[in-house]
């Protein structure tokens, strides 16, 4: 992998003390984010915030794969879509409680990730991305044809249920805090994974897969586990979204959703933790404000994409972390 594109802060620089597993600068960012989650609903429509939070989790999942393992997937919409459908189905048809419905969506996406990954890791680079895209298109076809997804109408009337059998999630405040806390926990968990012995191997694979292999690491197995975790976390994000809005639709499983998460990750910063947060806020805000202008949104998104690929390749948080010389 080209050296010029690698992060400028060396992995393993002498450690300042970690707080909750975060480097100090990242911990500051985390505290800021906690404050945003706590205060934002006073000024911003909570359902918009919850939507953003789902995409933050989705982007964290995607960044684990792209930013920390060096694998580019164009198929994550399949995990997002199916995760949402299965969570919805479990809640509505099987009458499973909130926790188990979300678990169903998460595990479904994780198993799909295992299969996708098992097929795709035989190739690298562009071919890897193409295989994930092709598999996702097949899943889209299934979703379009199958009855259980509700086809063009989507899967509707997904019940919210209760949290721990006690807190009624149809209460918007309880729902908001549940989603907010789960989002903060996801940030914590992904940071933890990145800073585990496993995460160290993933980063080495991103840097130089050939050398990782020749030092005795079974690179394919690590890639596969990373892919599976990423897919499962994507399913988790989608499950929350299905519960919040009571609906799962074809647009969640559409290839546009895959490109959306790529865009969020790119704008925020590939290989950063808080890039997923900043990216999701920016892109979803942009979509929100441009929605009334229809196809113009696509044009603007295209321009943003190009701008970041050509000029700000490190992304907003990536650029900030280079400037501060601290991981964010």
């Amino acid at each position: 992998m080209s050296d010029t594109n690698a992060p400028r802060i060396a992995v393993g620089s002498p450690k300042a003390r970690h707080i909750l597993g975060f480097e100090p600068a990242r911990f500051v960012a985390f505290v800021l984010f906690v404050a945003v989650v706590a205060l934002a609903p006073m000024v911003v429509y909570p359902y918009f915030l919850m939507r953003v939070y789902c995409f933050i989790i989705f982007a964290l999942a995607y960044n684990l794969l792209l930013g920390f393992t060096g694998l580019m997937s164009f198929g994550h919409a399949a995990f997002f879509g199916m995760g949402g459908y299965l969570c919805g189905w479990a809640a509505r048809e099987w009458g499973l409680p909130f926790e188990l419905a979300v678990l169903t969506g998460t595990v479904t996406a994780g198993l799909m990730g295992l299969v996708f990954g098992w097929i795709a890791i035989r190739r690298t680079g562009l071919y890897f991305a193409m295989i994930t895209l092709a598999l996702a298109q097949m899943v889209y076809f299934v979703a379009l044809q199958a009855d259980f997804t509700g086809g063009e109408n989507g899967m509707q009337r997904i019940p919210r249920g209760t949290l721990l059998g006690f807190f009624d999630l149809s209460d918007p405040t309880i729902l908001y805090w549940t989603i907010g806390v789960l989002t903060l926990f996801s940030v914590y968990a992904v940071n933890r994974i990145v800073h585990s012995p496993f995460g160290q191997v993933l980063r080495a694979i991103r840097e130089n897969p050939v050398r990782a292999k020749s030092l005795g690491y079974n690179v394919d197995r690590y890639k596969l586990l990373s892919f599976t975790i990423s897919a499962a976390l994507t399913g988790f994000a989608a499950s929350l979204k299905a519960v919040i809005f009571g609906i799962s639709t074809l647009s969640d499983i559409d290839v546009m959703t895959s490109t959306e998460v790529v865009l969020i990750t790119l704008v925020g910063g590939i290989g950063t933790i808080f890039g997923s947060v900043v990216g999701a806020f920016l892109i979803l805000s942009m979509e929100h404000f441009l929605a009334p202008y229809g196809p113009w949104l696509l044009l603007v998104e295209g321009v943003v994409f190009m701008l970041f690929v050509l000029v700000f390749r490190r992304g907003i948080v990536g650029g900030l972390q280079d400037w501060l010389k601290r991981p964010l």
């Binding site: 970690h18 994974i193 012995p197 496993f198 995460g199 160290q200 975790i229």
Partner: peptide, 12 residues
């Protein structure tokens, strides 16, 4: 094993 994604890298 280095598949322990829940542990801290401090143990390295």
């Amino acid at each position: 094993s280095n598949f322990d994604f829940w542990r801290s890298e401090l143990r390295l």
